[in-house]
Structures are given as C-alpha cells and as structure tokens.
Design a protein around this nucleic acid. Sequence first.
DNA 1: TGAGCCATACTTCCATACCAGTCAAGCATT
DNA 2: AATGCTTGACTGGTATGGAAGTATGGCTCA
Lengths: 240, 240
Amino acid sequence: MKPEEIDQSAAVAPQIYRSIRARIVAGALEPGAPLSEAEVAAAYRVSRQPVREAFIRLAAVGLVQVRPQRGTYVTEITEKAVLDARFVREAIEAEIVRLVAGAADPSVVAELRAQLALQRAVKPDDAATFLRLDERFHRTLAEAADQPYAWGVVEEVKAQMDRVRMLSYYPQHMTRLIEQHQAVVDAIADADVAAAERAMRAHLREIIQSVRELVSERPDLFTGTHNRRNHGRKSNDATV
Amino acid sequence: MKPEEIDQSAAVAPQIYRSIRARIVAGALEPGAPLSEAEVAAAYRVSRQPVREAFIRLAAVGLVQVRPQRGTYVTEITEKAVLDARFVREAIEAEIVRLVAGAADPSVVAELRAQLALQRAVKPDDAATFLRLDERFHRTLAEAADQPYAWGVVEEVKAQMDRVRMLSYYPQHMTRLIEQHQAVVDAIADADVAAAERAMRAHLREIIQSVRELVSERPDLFTGTHNRRNHGRKSNDATV
DNA sequence: TGAGCCATACTTCCATACCAGTCAAGCATT
DNA sequence: AATGCTTGACTGGTATGGAAGTATGGCTCA
C-alpha cells in the first residue's frame, strides 16, 4: 500500500490522516515503524503542516506515538490496548443493540438479514470485503438505534481492534462471525432484548481470543521489530 | 476568566487547549462566540500555530466548530448533543460500576465513603468544588475497575455535559446528587451488581432533566446570541 | 429608494523558516 | 582499548508569510 495521491483542491490534512490510518490498520506500516513529518510530507508532496495535524489525530486515537524532539512511531499493538478498546466498544454496542431489539422495527430486521446474505456470499479468503461488511453491520445497528454520535466514538475506539482483526483473520473465522451476527439479528427479530445483548457481547468478545492467539503467533508485532535507530534514509521502500 | 499566562518553556498547544476548554465549560466563552486563531494567539501572546492545534482538539470533542475560511465558533449547546454524550457515558459507566460492584473491594468502598463525606462538607453554593469532587468520584470508580482508558473516553465525551451541569447547578441539587452517589456506594458495598448499575444509570440520567430545564430557562444558550448564517452546512471533519 | 456589483477586510489552510532538544557517531584523551 | 566529550544531523514545536475562500459595507446604476 502506497501513499495515495492527494487532492490539493480539498483539505489535505484529513486525506493524509485517512491514508496513514488505513495503512496502519492494514499492517502496511508496522508497529514500531518510525514516521517523520518531513519524510511523510515529501512522500505525499505536501508541506509538513497538514502531516503534523494528521499525526495529532492519529496520536489521539492511539495509532501513533509522538515523542517530542525524538520522533513519531506507529504504536505497537498491546494486548491491554486492544482489551481496553474492546471494553468500551462492548459497553456502547451492548447498549445500542438493546435499543434496537426493544424497538423491533421490521424494516431494520429485513435490512440486517439482507446484509447477512451479503456476508455469506463473500469468498472466505476475502478478508477485506468481509471486514467492511462487518463494519457496515455494526454501523447499521447504531443508525437503527439513532445513535450516530455513539457510533463515532466506537469508530475511534475500534482502530486498535481493527489492526488485530486484520492480522488474525482466517477463513474459518468468517463462518463463526456470521453465525454470531445471525444470533444478534434473530434476537432482535424476537424483540428479545436480553438475548440480543448477550449475543452482541459474545460476538465482541471474540477479539479476546484473537489477540491472545496473535500474541503467541506474532510476538514481533507486540514487542516491535524496528530498532529505534537508523532514521538514516536508505531503504528504497519510500516507507513514509 | 481570562487567558492565563502561558509557560513558553513547555509545549504551548496543550496549554491553550486546556485553557480554552475550561473557559468554554465554565461559560466564560459563550455558545456561538467567534474565536479566531489570530485573536486568540494575540491574547495568549503566542503564534497562531499552537492555537490552531488547540482548535483542532476542541473541535474533536465538539466544543468548537471550525468552518473553513469562515471562522471558528464555540458550539452552541444542543439538547441532542448532551443526550448523545450522556448515552455513551451511561453505557461505559454502567459497565464500570458493575465491575466494581462485582469485585467488592473493601478499600475501594472505604475510599468512596470518604469522598462522600467530603462531598457533604461542601458549601451548597460552591458549585465548582462539588463538580470537581463529583468528577473525582466517577474517576475513582473507573480506576477501581482498572479501566483508565475507558475513563479517558468518558472525559472526552462529558465535555458537553459539563457545560450544562455548570449552568444548571443549584444548591438543592447537590443533596440529591450526593444521595445518588450514596446509593451507588451502598450497592457496591453490598456487592449487588444489578443495584449498582441501576443506581449509576439513574444518577447519570439526572442530566436529562437538567438540560430540559435549561432549554426553557436559558434558550439563548441554545439558539445562540451571536446569530450565524449559513446553518445549512455541516463542516464535520473539515479540519483534521 | 432599492438592487446588484465590487473592493476589502477578515477567516482558515498550507508552505516555509527557524528554534531547541535528542541522540549517535567519531574524535580526543586517558 | 576504553571512556568521555564534541559535533552535527536528525526530531518535533513554534513563528510567520502567502494563498484561497467568505462575509460585509459601500458604491454604482436603474
């Protein structure tokens, strides 16, 4: 994944933010990798200023760490950070799904069932597509509960989780996750508030297993492979 | 409340952020009031750059609204924004208090009871002191649940609520709030998870009444005294 | 008198320059 | 050879200038 082109006619800072965020979540920028305002600016062919503002936002959601006069680094994934994010997400989404189940709007149920069909149609190895549909599923619930603001908070918080989900994805996982979505939708259709909440909480706790497995399988992502020195240019890899 | 002095030897952007945030929450900067990078910079005797970064953070928590090429304005308080924030806060804090009640740590209970005593000692008309103790109470619960990250999210979200609480405070209110705190602590002491959650949710729903009363008593804060045009635009992430 | 145009004084956003702090390589000294 | 210090190339933070866009007040013209 390369730095995309920047549309100079629109505000560039948000574009930089989204681009770098996507690259971190996708793993193209590895945990511990150094980012430099100057290098990133050169790669995107913009000045340091909008890059700096993008870094501020990335730091706010915990994807990078700015150390004054030392450098800015992609934060390493820590089990604690992922679990902390999950805690907040579960709290909010449990509340959301209770609202949705309590309302029991047939059109919402129909929409969710349609999305389930789309999810089942995804090729098992197409992680990116499935994860996008998964996000859409959860966002749909938030909108059904008329809680767009709460969804904004979830979106910020889940950045940490997304990194793990992208890395720990395997095809069999998809079936399992769809079954959990199914359980949520069924409970909503039954207007069974408690069951819907239980199903959602169980679903969101999948990540706990995922992160534990990832810790043992890819410890490099947690301890960090990049040694902190060698800021010196050299790598062909235009790695911003 | 005036712009405080800035310590030039430390990073100034965070200082500007905290100062302006405090002034907005305290009502010294009224809803709808225009802020300008240049004016604020002059007032604090710093350059526009750190002011700009402070504005970005303030916009992220919804205290100001940046409209490109038009100006930056203190956001008006809207009932919806306050209720949305409350929804997220209740979700998170309900989860937190369940953890605390489930653990039933005697030292935590002792600490909370000590804080209740402090709260009762506050003079009824000293809103600032009481609200500080209230914040401390809730933060203590988050720390007892070992969820500092979740508390960080709450702190961001509650900015909207704090404005209302400051404005709608009246002495009799204090007694009522302390009783609610008492109920939470009692439930924790009894290790009654469900009761603790109920008490916390009831406590956090006080704000619903407060904001409704404020809407009718001080409509100027909601409609804005400084009238603005061009309401038709939403500059959501116009800035990073 | 009233409607439309235009100069102008703002605004935020981006680019550039300068600053102080950090850190590692390498010389100088022991 | 080992250790301490200097030096210089980085870093992010701040200051400042210019560009593009927007709102406004006054002018022109009907």
